[in-house]
Nucleic acid binder design. Structure first.
Lengths: 349, 349
DNA sequence: GCCCTCGTGTAGAACGTTCTCTACTTCGAT
DNA sequence: ATCGAAGTAGAGAACGTTCTACACGAGGGC
C-alpha cells in the first residue's frame, strides 16, 4: 500500500545551475563564491549576475563535506539564564556582519545530555564551538577541541587545545565582601553552586568564586565568620538555601550568591520568614541579569559584561577557524559591582 | 610565507572504516544504520559490533546530502522571553528520546534578520522547522514551508502548507476581563504589541488578543471604556506605556498586557508615580512566565501552557518529516488564568 | 624565435552518506 | 529437475560542494 506520490518539494538551485546559466565552469563559480585567487573581474561579474538572477544560495551541508559550513555552534545548559542571553547577544553582534551563522544547542543540565549535544554539533560540521560553562567531562571537551576549534566560557582551567573566556570571579566575590563589610556586616554567607565532581574540571566559576570569598573574608579578619552553602542556581535552590541559613542558630546578616536567580529564591525565603530586605537582610546576586534590575527587585549584583564576553569569544573563535592564530589564549574580564536597594547598613542586632 | 603545517586535526571514523572493519560493504552498514529492510540478524550484529568498537557516529552533514540530517531547526526572536523557554523545553522533552537534535536560531526582532536565519536553517538541511511567532514576511514562510516541513507557533493565520500551534488568545483576554470586572473594575486598558504591518500576517497573537479584549468588554457593556495602547513587549516598552496611561486624564484602574515583561515595566512606572499595586492599580500579565511567579512580583497572569505547545509542535513536525501525514493541521490550546497578588477589588475613587 | 612565468579557466576527484539496481542464495512448489 | 519468489548482500551513482592539478594563452626577457 503505497502512499500517494510525494508532494513535489521544489528543487534547489545548485552551483551547477549557476555555472550553466553563466556559461562557465562549476569550479569558476566556486572560486567566486569563496573569493579565491584566480578570477578575472569579468568572470566575477558574470557569475555574480547569474547568482543574483537565480537566487542561488550555497548549500551549507554540502559545503561542509569538503570545506567550511560557516556555522558556529553554541552549547548552553539553560536558556532561562539571562546571563547566557547576554553572552549570546554578544556572539550574535560580533558575527552579525560576517558570513557565519550561530546555532544554539540547548542541552539542559545533565552532563550526558550536554555531551550528546556537543557531539551533535560536531557531527553537523560546525566550524567552531563555543561552550558556555559546560558540564561535560573535561576530557571529552579536550577531545573535541582537538578536532574543532573551541572556546570555553566560564571554567578557569587552562588548556592548550582550546581558548577560554572567563570572568575574574574571585575579584567579583571580593567586591561584594568589601561592599558588605563596608556596610558593617560581618556574618556574610555565600550561596554557590555545588562544585561539580566527576567531570574533572578543576576550576569552574563557583570554585573560583568561593576562593575569592574566603580570601576576602580572611583579608577583613573574618575568617571565622565564613559560611558557604551549596545550592542549585534556581529559584527553588535559593529558597531552600535561604530557609536553611536564615533559620540557623546564628543567621547571617548578609547573603551573597553566585547567581541572581538564586538570590531571588532567598528573597522569597526571607519574605516567608517575615524578614525585610534590606532592613533585616542584605542580599547580593551575581551576573547583573535583567532580573536584578527589575523594578520590584532592585538587587545589588556583580556585572560580568556578558555581552563583551560573548563578543570576545566569537572573535577568538573566528581567528582560530580561519587559521589566523594557532596558540591557545585566554581572556579574563573584570567584574564590576552594581549597588541597588537590596543591601544596606547592618543594624545592631 | 606559508604558516607551519596545520596541527593535524584528527580524522573522523567513517562508514567506510566501519564496513572494512566488519568485513562487509558500505551499503550494508548504511542499511543497518537506517534499519532498512534486507539485513540479516547476523549482519546487523556484526555491523553493530564494529560501530561500537570504532566509536563511529554518522556524519550528519554528509547524510543531509542525500537523506535526512535528523535535525530540527527552531526560530526564535528573543532568548530572553521566558515563555519561549517553556516552548523550547516542550520541544526538547518531546524529542529527547528520538534521534533528532534541536538547533536554535536566535534571530532578534528584525524581520530581515529573521528571514536570514530561516534561510540559514534551510541551507543547513534541517529536516523540519518550528517558527515561533515569526516576524518574517508571510510569503517567505509559505515558500520555505513548501520545501521543508514547518510548524508555525503563535500566528492564527490558516495555511495549507504548514501546521500551526496557537493559543486561544481571545479567550485568554476574556478571562482577564471577566476577572477584573468581577473585582469591580470598569476602566480596563490593554497594552499589546503593535500589530505588525508589512509582513502580511493577518492574525498575529496580539491582534487576536485585542479582539478578545474588545469583545469581552462589550459583553460586559463596557464598550465605551476600552483603551488599547501599543507598546513593545519589553520592560522599557511597558514603562512608557504605563507612564502614558497612568498620567492620562482619566487613568485606568486596571491594566492588562500581552506579556509579563511589559507588565513589569508598567509596575515600574506605577512605582515611580507613587501608585501601589494592587491597591491603586490592578495589573495583569500574559504567558505566566517565571517572572510572574517571582517572589517580589506575584503577577496575575494568563498561562499558555508553553511546554505543551512546544511538545505538540514537535510531535506534529515529526509526523510531517516522516511522511506520516500530508495534510496541514492546527492545534489550539486553551489558556488559564492564574490569579496572584497584583489584582484586587477596585476601591471607589 | 624560444623558454618562463603569470594569470585565468576547467576537469575531475574527493568528501561521507543514501539508495536504486542487480546478483547471488536458498527454498518451496511444480 | 526446474522455475519463481523471497531474502540478503554489494556495486556504484548521486547529492552539492571544494580544491588540486593541469591546460592554455599572453607577455617578457634573452
Amino acid at each position: 500500500m503505497d502512499r500517494a506520490e510525494e508532494p513535489r518539494r521544489s528543487k534547489r538551485v545548485t552551483i551547477t545551475d549557476v555555472a550553466r546559466h553563466a556559461g562557465v565552469s562549476v569550479a569558476a563559480v566556486s572560486k567566486v563564491l569563496r573569493n579565491a585567487y584566480g578570477v578575472s573581474p569579468a568572470m566575477r561579474e558574470k557569475v555574480q549576475a547569474a547568482i543574483a538572477e537565480l537566487g542561488y544560495r550555497p548549500h551549507a551541508a554540502a559545503r561542509g563535506l569538503r570545506g567550511r559550513t560557516y556555522t558556529i555552534g553554541v552549547l548552553l545548559d539553560n536558556v532561562r539564564n539571562a546571563f547566557f542571553a547576554d553572552i549570546l547577544d554578544g556572539i550574535r553582534d560580533e558575527l552579525r556582519n560576517s558570513e557565519y551563522t550561530v546555532l544554539i544547542g540547548a542541552a539542559g543540565f545533565d552532563p550526558e545530555e550536554q555531551a550528546k549535544t556537543v557531539r551533535s554539533l560536531v557531527d553537523r560540521q560546525m566550524d567552531g564551538l563555543i561552550l558556555i560553562a559546560p558540564g561535560t567531562a573535561r576530557d571529552e571537551v579536550l577531545a573535541t577541541a582537538a578536532s574543532t576549534p573551541t572556546v570555553v566560557i566560564g571554567h578557569h582551567d587552562t588548556a592548550d587545545t582550546h581558548d577560554s573566556v572567563v570572568d575574574a570571579d574571585d575579584i567579583g566575590a571580593g567586591l561584594v565582601v568589601d561592599h558588605l563589610v563596608g556596610l558593617g556586616h560581618r556574618d556574610i554567607a555565600l550561596v554557590s553552586a555545588q562544585g561539580t565532581k566527576a567531570n574533572r574540571w578543576k576550576r569552574p566559576p563557583e570554585t573560583v568564586l568561593t576562593e575569592g570569598y574566603l580570601a576576602a573574608m580572611e583579608r577583613h579578619g573574618l575568617a571565622g565568620h565564613t559560611r558557604v552553602h551549596h545550592a542549585a542556581y534556581s529559584d527553588e535552590g535559593g529558597f531552600k538555601a535561604g530557609m536553611t541559613l536564615l533559620t540557623a542558630e546564628r543567621p547571617p546578616t548578609a547573603i551573597m550568591t553566585g547567581a541572581d536567580v538564586a538570590a531571588l529564591g532567598i528573597y522569597r525565603a526571607a519574605h516567608e520568614l517575615g524578614l525585610r530586605i534590606p532592613d533585616d537582610l542584605s542580599l547580593v546576586g551575581y551576573n547583573n541579569t535583567a532580573l536584578a534590575a527589575l523594578a520590584p527587585v532592585q538587587l545589588t549584583s556583580v556585572d560580568q559584561a556578558g555581552h563583551t564576553m560573548g563578543a570576545t569569544a566569537a572573535r577568538m573563535l573566528i581567528e582560530r577557524v580561519e587559521g589566523r592564530r594557532d596558540r591557545a589564549m585566554r581572556t579574563t574580564m573584570t567584574p564590576r559591582l552594581v549597588v541597588r536597594r537590596s543591601t544596606a547598613e547592618q543594624r545592631g542586632r
